[in-house]
Amino acid sequence: MQSPNWDDIRVFLAVARAGRLQAAGRLLGLDHSTVARRMGTLEAAIGARLIDRSPRGVVLTHAGEVLRDHAERIEVEMIGASAAVGADTGTVAGSVRLATPEAFGTYLVAPNVHRLHARHPTIELELAPESRSVSLSRREADIAIGLTRPPRGRLVARRLVDYRLGLYAAREYLAHHPTIDTVEAVKAHPLVWYIDELIDIPELRYFDQIVSDAPTVFRSSSIAAQQAAVANGLGIGVLHVFAAEQDSRLERVLPDLEVTRSYWLLMHADQQRLPRIRAVVDFLDEVVRINQHRF
């Protein structure tokens, strides 16, 4: 048996976690044919078939399951070695992928990322602000901002900050419509909301906690798109207070009616000491601290 190449093992781990060659390629920045070729090279070096392919994806063989356990231990050692070398040389560099809910990434991280760059110009931050769940266990991101604490797994988790959501409408819209002074009155106005079947994060399902049975006139999986539609006078929307209060076109409706949620900071236990990871975590803590008044 030949000695397997670590880069090929990294490809194998990505395939094992993603369940598809194409998905693994997207994670690694490789095309499908390169992933397939690297898997073939690794199987030749190991002397065993590692995956079975089907139209529904890939399944690890027994040999693949055995290799995955060893490969993950090697990965942990490589990460530890990288952290030790980085700490010894004082180097803070590299790419960090940060997955966040859209509002956090769009209205808090992006406007402040210049602070991280000024302090650590050799760190490349990859921001993925989405309304879907991201799996850290499949290495889809290095750090994630979640809306709940994960129940188990080798993750480090801590509550970052609580935030509020409330009803908003454009000042121009409110100037030309009757005063909204009760929850019942809201039902007479068009509502901007999510596309329900595209919400896979339960904590985003707060519609009934604020108002139910209101007619929706526009739906989007993007909270930024919802806020833009509301700010331009389409109707009423449930928006993040920390974002909506920064838009002078918007006015709070029924200020006592709100929902509170929490942002959680999540990262891999085996990566938390990497200098580049620590630098981004410090940056996130700074972002929350300087914007505390908005939450």
Rank of each mutant, 00 (worst) to 15 (best):
Q271N: 10
G40T: 02
F12K: 00
L42R: 02
D285P: 03
V288M: 05
L127G: 04
R53Y: 07
R17Y: 12
G47V: 03
G166H: 00
G237L: 01
Y206V: 15
V287M: 09
F242N: 08
L284A: 09
A128W: 03
P190G: 08
R17M: 10
P101C: 08
G235P: 00
Q227K: 12
A279F: 02
A36F: 09
F283L: 03
D270M: 05
V15S: 01
P202K: 04
A110S: 14
A175T: 14
A144N: 04
L50D: 04
P55R: 01
R37V: 10
P111V: 00
M39I: 15
I180A: 04
A228I: 08
E102V: 04
R132S: 14
D247R: 01
R97F: 00
P4K: 12
R205H: 10
V109T: 09
A45M: 04
V134T: 14
Q209G: 01
H70T: 15
G64P: 05
A188E: 14
P178M: 05
S133A: 12
D196H: 08
R56K: 11
L165G: 06
P190Y: 04
P129M: 05
L167T: 13
Q272V: 12
R159S: 11
R56C: 03
D213T: 11
L284Q: 11
W193K: 04
S137Q: 14
L239C: 05
L265F: 04
L284H: 07
L116I: 03
A214G: 09
W264T: 12
Y173G: 08
Q246G: 06
P111D: 03
R132N: 11
A228Y: 08
R164L: 12
N232W: 00
E65F: 05
S222E: 01
A170S: 15
A269C: 07
A24P: 06
A225W: 06
F242G: 09
M267F: 03
T34L: 12
V96E: 02
H120Q: 02
E140F: 07
E258L: 06
T106F: 06
P121S: 10
F218I: 05
S220G: 11
P178T: 09
L266A: 10
A87N: 15
M267Q: 07
A185E: 15
K187A: 07
L234Q: 09
A18F: 03
R171G: 15
T89V: 09
R10A: 12
H268I: 07
Q209K: 13
D270G: 02
L167A: 11
I195N: 13
A231G: 15
P55Y: 01
E172Y: 01
I223P: 06
P202W: 02
F207Q: 10
P151A: 13
Y263D: 09
G29I: 06
F104W: 05
D181E: 12
